[in-house]
Design a protein around this nucleic acid. Structure first.
Lengths: 142, 142
DNA sequence: CTTACTGCAAAGGATTTGCAGTTAA
DNA sequence: TTAACTGCAAATCCTTTGCAGTAAG
């Protein structure tokens, strides 16, 4: 994975730096979605001198290359995970904020209908469900 | 409309103030979606002394009562329009930012499937399509 | 070597909060 | 009368930017 991303970075004239590797590995290892501040905290464990600005800049680069995907969740938090957008959707817990992905089809038809009816050239979509995850339903978290 | 909302406000122990009326009327008259700063600018034309904080506070109140609906659009802009969420979805122009609503069904089935598969108690959803509107497709806006 | 990248600190923009005065009910 | 509301200014929070030094290629 790192090899592939390194290639992508190089192809676009970006350099491979320890900071970029660390950010990417952190997101990859997390599995779920991390906010910039969370990425920062985790990267700092191994790489204490990294600056928050570098994390933001790295997230921008990786996002612009499609290496990571940003979700526009409720509560104005940006979070990031590995992978390109649009291939999956999100199920967000209103209790703990955890994000689960799901895949669905059928949006293509809807998209076609919308293009016809609205005249838009549709480029992408966001589909998020918000609810309470099993843990938060049973637990004492509110 | 204002009467209905006044009733709602009163029922919840909120007072009817000129500022709240002005914010509500501004959003109602706009038809589309307004960011807090846009609401503020427009309200100021008729009500020059209003403060931005009051606009934010009013938006919070109206949103919490379901009188207005907030969309979580790309680019980290919050915008508001009349009406409760979840009854419609959004088609957002990536050129000019204008938002069009659409209504669709079929998400209920998907929701049921997700509840079964994930164990979530789903409370709501967001469905947004992003694309270029007819004006921006034909015009010179990029 | 060259120039992209980094860390730091300062700047920026959006939203929230504290407070004393005001006003709806 | 009285408690919710307001405007203002300051405070917060998140993100971006300027800069001089560092390091990838």
């Amino acid at each position: 994975m790192l090899d592939r991303v390194s290639g992508t970075l190089r192809q676009h004239g970006y350099r491979i730096t320890p900071q970029r590797k660390a950010v990417l590995e952190t997101i990859a290892r997390a599995g779920g979605y991390l906010a910039p501040s969370e990425v920062y905290e985790r990267v700092r464990r191994k790489h204490p001198s990294i600056g928050l600005a570098t994390v933001y800049r790295t997230l921008d680069v990786l996002k612009s290359l499609g290496v990571i995907c940003e979700i526009l969740a409720a509560g104005d938090v940006r979070t990031y995970t590995l992978g390109a957008p649009d291939h999956h959707h999100h199920l967000i817990c209103s209790g703990c904020g955890r994000v689960t992905d799901f895949i669905t089809r059928g949006l293509e038809e809807l998209q076609q209908r919308l293009e016809l009816e609205s005249g838009f050239a549709i480029e992408g979509h966001v589909l998020e469900f918000i609810g309470r995850c099993p843990d938060c339903r049973s637990g004492s978290m509110g």
